[in-house]
Simulated scan of single mutants.
Amino acid sequence: MIETTCQPIAQLRLNDLAPDFAARSTCGPITLSSYRGRWVLLFAHPANFTPVCTSEFIAIARASPDFEKLDCALLGLSVDSLYSHIAWIRDIRERFGINVAFPLIEDPSMEIAKAYGMIDGTSDSSATVRATYVIDPEGIIRAIVWYPMNVGRSVHESLRLVSALQSAQRENASTPEGWLPGNPLLEHAPTSDRYEGELAPGESWYYRERRT
């Protein structure tokens, strides 16, 4: 039985509170709220036993230690039943030698998918669901990434995104294009067209790297 504490909405936006839910998973009953205090990567896929989704789960499982270093929990989701989930991850382990240890949540009624705006509230198909939500320790949605059915998501980009969000928040700064841990951060843009502080030679008032 799946329970959500938010009514279905057309579309969640950044900085919205992530709808809580209670559902069955391959790791037992879980609630989203039980992950408060940690970052969460909630990612949905269209169906088990499909090629793109299998490639994603193999890659995510391999990268799970890297997400753990970021204190970021992994939560998979699809409309398939719990029994289908168990059979699929067992087959992945037997065929590819990969252990999917993170929870895979069942959503047969599509209540979670609808609450998150992954699919239209009247839809009877999960065909469009390949969405990723990065949720911060306060339960706030900090990033949303959608992919079509035939294009797999980048696990490296998911890791980079979580790391960038954490660093930007911790350092009260911004991250430039393609930022990776160890690269310079950017100062926030000024709120006027003039910068009154001291600029380094050749430095722009609107584009300033964080000085270390």
Rank of each mutant, 00 (worst) to 15 (best):
I30W: 02
I30V: 15
I30M: 13
T31N: 14
T31G: 13
T31L: 02
T31H: 07
L32Y: 07
L32P: 02
S33A: 15
S33K: 14
S33N: 13
S33C: 10
S34C: 09
S34K: 12
Y35I: 04
Y35S: 14
Y35P: 03
Y35C: 13
Y35T: 13
Y35L: 14
Y35Q: 13
R36E: 13
R36Y: 07
R36F: 06
R36N: 11
R36T: 13
R36V: 11
R36H: 13
R36L: 15
G37L: 09
G37R: 10
R38G: 10
R38N: 15
R38V: 04
W39N: 13
W39G: 14
W39Q: 12
V40G: 05
V40E: 05
V40C: 12
V40I: 15
V40K: 04
L41N: 03
L41W: 05
L41A: 08
L42K: 08
L42T: 05
L42D: 10
L42Q: 09
F43I: 02
F43D: 06
F43R: 05
F43V: 02
F43H: 11
F43E: 04
F43S: 04
A44S: 15
A44N: 14
A44E: 06
A44Y: 12
A44R: 01
H45Q: 09
H45E: 04
H45C: 03
H45T: 01
H45D: 03
H45V: 07
H45R: 06
P46I: 10
P46D: 12
P46M: 08
P46R: 07
P46C: 06
P46N: 10
A47P: 01
A47F: 06
A47L: 11
A47D: 11
N48E: 10
N48S: 12
N48Y: 00
N48W: 00
N48T: 08
F49L: 10
F49T: 03
T50W: 00
T50E: 02
T50N: 01
T50C: 02
P51Y: 03
P51H: 05
P51W: 03
P51R: 06
P51V: 08
P51I: 05
P51C: 06
P51N: 06
V52E: 04
T54V: 06
T54C: 07
T54Y: 04
T54N: 09
T54G: 11
T54K: 08
T54H: 07
S55H: 02
S55F: 01
S55R: 10
S55G: 01
S55P: 00
E56A: 00
E56T: 02
E56L: 02
E56G: 01
E56P: 01
F57P: 00
F57D: 00
F57N: 08
F57G: 01
F57T: 01
F57A: 03
F57S: 02
F57M: 14
I58Y: 08
I58E: 09
I58W: 04
I58V: 15
I58S: 11
I58H: 08
A59W: 02
A59E: 15
A59S: 14
A59I: 04
A59K: 12
A59P: 06
I60R: 00
I60S: 01
I60V: 15
I60E: 01
I60L: 12
I60M: 08
A61M: 01
A61R: 02
A61F: 05
A61I: 04
R62Q: 14
R62F: 03
A63S: 14
A63C: 09
A63M: 06
A63F: 08
S64Y: 03
S64P: 06
S64D: 09
P65E: 12
P65G: 11
P65Y: 11
P65L: 09
P65A: 11
